[in-house]
Amino acid sequence: MESKKKWIFNIIFLLLIFAATFYGVFHGKDMGRIIEIIKTVNPFWLIPGVICVIIFIWGESIIIHYLMHSLGIKVKKWTCFLFSSVGFFFSCITPSASGGQPAQVYYMKKEDIPIPISTMVLLIITIIYKMVLVLLGIALVIFGQGFIHRYLSDAIFWFYLGMGLNVVCVAIMVVFAFHPNFAKSIMIKGHILLERIHILKHRKSRAKKLVQSMDQYRGAAVYLQENKKVLIVVFLITMVQRFALFAATWFVYLAFGLKGTSAFTVILLQGSIAVAVDMLPLPGGMGISEKIFLDIFLPVFGSMLLLPGMVLSRGLGYYTELILSAIFTIVANFTIGRKKKSVVEKC
């Protein structure tokens, strides 16, 4: 019942944010004119934009497959792609992308992947995923002050807020990932506290299971610490994955037949939006992403094409990702764990 209420809340929250965003962006605008302008784009250039989104989803599946195999867990690449799709779908529809990893852990458990291992793998992915944004932000602050003053002046607060939140988040996750004994101590003390204040009933079996889980978690953490090459490979794949999604806006730019702004600039601008909104408690950064786009992309698209450009860019970067991941989440729901279940039924 509680899970169903949470689902209803998330859906209502998503619809309210979407409605508020739609109203805020298009209120007082000539929708007919916007649609007419969008119809003039060259659809040829939107195809590689969609491919960029697929690479983004597919990239995480490669990382999951690579990390699982490095930890001795056999899992098919197609199953990993479904895990990735599930994560992105639930991240797109929940505040701060909070629903992605729990959903992935649930589906991985259906494939008999131990929860401590799946948690550790997803923690590593999240750390490096956010670290790419942190390094991008730091690089801009150190080497790109001219870029920041030219393009980001109207969104500077959001940029630095996002930077700060990402740095804090990465620091906390690094402690848990690479100091497993400390993480184990916190988890055990937290469990004892929850029992003392009567949120959880005292059960020796639960405490024993928690200790065993954290020991398994520690084993995975130690393995990754001793295999730095694994982390380097994951970092490089994540770089390609993240910048592929940023590049989708470049293909929107080309679809309008525009010239004069480099792909490097457009990709950095889209990356700056990701830095700003990644940690904010909004599904897919909805609302604030559109606002920042309209603030910083004006010199790139011009006043006439700015709003149509935003519509197509967000259409590719968020809504296409949402639709594709939703389709494969449905596939995951009907396929993951089903073979094992059918074997049990036959027996």
Results as ranks from 00 to 15, higher is better:
Phe301Trp: 01
Asp295Ser: 14
Gly59Thr: 02
Trp7Glu: 10
Val53Tyr: 07
Ala20Lys: 06
Leu316His: 06
Thr249Tyr: 03
Ser213Phe: 08
Met214Ala: 10
Ser153Trp: 04
His179Tyr: 15
Ile37Gln: 13
Val141Trp: 10
Val105Met: 12
Val240Trp: 03
Gly59Val: 03
Cys92Trp: 00
Thr238Ser: 12
Pro283Ala: 02
Phe256Val: 13
Pro114Arg: 12
Phe264Met: 10
Ala171Trp: 09
Asn10Val: 04
Met68Ala: 15
Val25Glu: 04
Leu269Asp: 02
Phe235Gly: 01
Ile288Gly: 05
Val300Ile: 15
Ser205Gly: 10
Lys189Phe: 14
His179Val: 02
Gly146Trp: 07
Leu165Lys: 00
Ser98Trp: 01
Val266Gln: 00
Gly32Val: 08
Val141Pro: 01
Leu254Asp: 02
Thr126Pro: 00
Gln104Glu: 04
Val25Tyr: 05
Ile93Gly: 03
Gln101His: 04
Leu282Arg: 00
Val277Gln: 06
Ile62Tyr: 07
Leu280Gly: 07
Cys80Phe: 02
Tyr223Thr: 10
Gly72Lys: 15
Ala255Gln: 00
Leu269Asn: 03
Trp7Thr: 12
Gly271Tyr: 00
Lys259Glu: 11
Leu316Asn: 03
Phe328Trp: 13
Gln145Thr: 11
Gly100Ser: 11
Ser84Ile: 08
Leu16Ile: 15
Phe83Ser: 06
Ile125Val: 09
Val343Ile: 15
Ile237Met: 11
Leu282Met: 14
Phe251Leu: 13
Leu210Phe: 11
Ile323Gly: 04
Leu82Asp: 02
Thr320Gly: 00
Gly59Glu: 03
Leu312Ile: 11
Lys341Pro: 05
Val168Ala: 14
Thr119Asp: 00
Glu195Ala: 11
Val233Glu: 06
Leu152Met: 10
Ile117Leu: 13
Tyr23Arg: 05
Tyr223Arg: 09
Trp250Gln: 06
Leu123Phe: 01
Val167Pro: 07
Phe44Cys: 03
Thr320Ser: 14
Ser61Lys: 08
Met214Thr: 05
Lys341Cys: 05
Thr329Gln: 09
Val252Asn: 02
Gln104Tyr: 02
Asp295His: 05
Val277Asp: 03
Leu16Gln: 02
Phe264Tyr: 12
His198Ala: 10
Val266Gly: 03
Ile54Phe: 13
Gln241Gly: 05
Met279Gly: 06
Val277Tyr: 05
Met310Asp: 01
Gly164Phe: 14
Tyr151Cys: 09
Ile142Asn: 09
Cys169Pro: 00
Lys184Asn: 07
Val53Ser: 06
Leu268Met: 12
